[in-house]
C-alpha cells in the first residue's frame, strides 16, 4: 500500500501537468472530474427550470402546444438529433484516442465533432429563418391562425397560447444552441492543443471534461426533440 503510493508520487513528479496541491495525477484527475460533474448538475437544474415551465404550460394549454408543435419540421429535428448523437460518438472515440496516445486520430475526431456541431447549428439557423418568415417569432408581429386537429375536429387555438409555446421553443432551443456554440469553441481550442501534442495517455483531462459537457448538451437535446417536435403528431 505504502509502496504503491510512493511509486505513484514518483511517476507523477515527472509530469509537468501535476499541480503542487495534488498528491498524484490520479487524484488530480478525479478532482477535476468531480468538479466537472458538479458543474453539470448546475446545468441540469438550469435547464430543469425551463423544462418545468414547459410542463406547466403544456398541461394548461395543450391544444395550442400541439398546434405549435405541428409547425416544427420533424425532418430537421430528427436529422439534428442524429447529428448530435453521432457527435457524441466521435467525442467518446476522441477520448479513447487520447487514452491510447494516438494524436492524429484524436485531432481528426475532434475536428469531426466541431463540424457536426456546426452542422447542427446550421440546420437550427434554417429552422429559425423559417419561423421568422412565418411570423412565428414571439413579439408584436406574431401571427398564428392554425387549428388543433382533434381526430378530425378542428379546434381553433388562442394565438396568445401558441405564442407561449414559441417563446418556450425559442428560449429552450436558443439556450441549447448557445451551449452548442460554446462547445464548438471549446473543441476548436482543444483541437489546436491536441495538434500541438499537449495531451498524452497520462494527461487528457481537458478532452474528457469537455466531452462530459458535450454529452450533457446532447442529453438535453434528446429530451427537447420529443417534447417540442413530437406533441400529438398522430391524427
Amino acid at each position: 500500500m505504502a509502496d504503491s503510493h510512493a511509486t505513484a508520487v514518483d511517476t507523477a513528479v515527472a509530469s509537468p501537468q501535476l499541480r503542487h496541491h495534488f498528491a498524484d495525477m490520479e487524484q488530480q484527475k478525479n478532482a477535476a472530474s468531480l468538479g466537472m460533474w458538479l458543474f453539470l448538475v448546475t446545468e441540469i437544474m438550469f435547464f430543469g427550470g425551463m423544462f418545468c415551465a414547459y410542463l406547466v404550460y403544456r398541461t394548461k394549454y395543450f391544444n395550442a402546444f400541439a398546434a405549435g408543435s405541428q409547425q416544427l419540421s420533424i425532418g430537421m429535428g430528427a436529422f439534428n438529433t442524429a447529428v448530435l448523437l453521432i457527435s457524441s460518438l466521435t467525442v467518446v472515440l476522441a477520448v479513447r484516442a487520447a487514452q491510447d496516445g494516438k494524436r492524429k486520430q484524436l485531432v481528426s475526431y475532434l475536428v469531426i465533432t466541431v463540424l457536426l456541431g456546426l452542422t447542427f447549428l446550421g440546420v437550427k439557423g434554417v429552422e429559425y429563418r423559417e419561423k421568422f418568415e412565418k411570423h412565428h417569432v414571439p413579439g408584436p408581429t406574431f401571427q398564428f391562425t392554425d387549428t388543433f386537429d382533434d381526430n378530425g375536429k378542428k379546434i381553433p387555438v388562442d394565438a396568445q397560447h401558441a405564442q407561449l409555446f414559441f417563446s418556450i421553443y425559442f428560449v429552450m432551443t436558443g439556450m441549447h444552441a448557445l451551449h452548442m456554440i460554446i462547445g464548438c469553441g471549446l473543441f476548436t481550442v482543444l483541437t489546436v492543443f491536441a495538434w500541438k501534442g499537449h495531451y498524452s495517455p497520462g494527461y487528457y483531462t481537458p478532452i474528457e471534461n469537455a466531452g462530459l459537457y458535450w454529452h450533457l448538451v446532447d442529453i438535453i437535446w434528446i429530451y427537447l426533440f420529443p417534447l417540442l417536435y413530437l406533441i400529438s403528431r398522430h391524427s
Binding site: S88, V92, G211, D218, R233, S235
Partner: peptide, 29 residues
C-alpha cells in the same frame, strides 16, 4: 409519434428519451 396511443404517446416518447439519456450517461460519460 405517428401512431395513436392516446395518453401513452408522451409516456413512450419520454421513456425512449430516458433510455437514450441513460445509455449516454452510463457508457459515453
Amino acid at each position: 409519434a405517428f401512431v395513436n396511443l392516446g395518453p401513452f404517446n408522451p409516456v413512450i416518447a419520454l421513456l425512449i428519451a430516458t433510455i437514450k439519456a441513460t445509455l449516454v450517461v452510463l457508457f459515453f460519460m
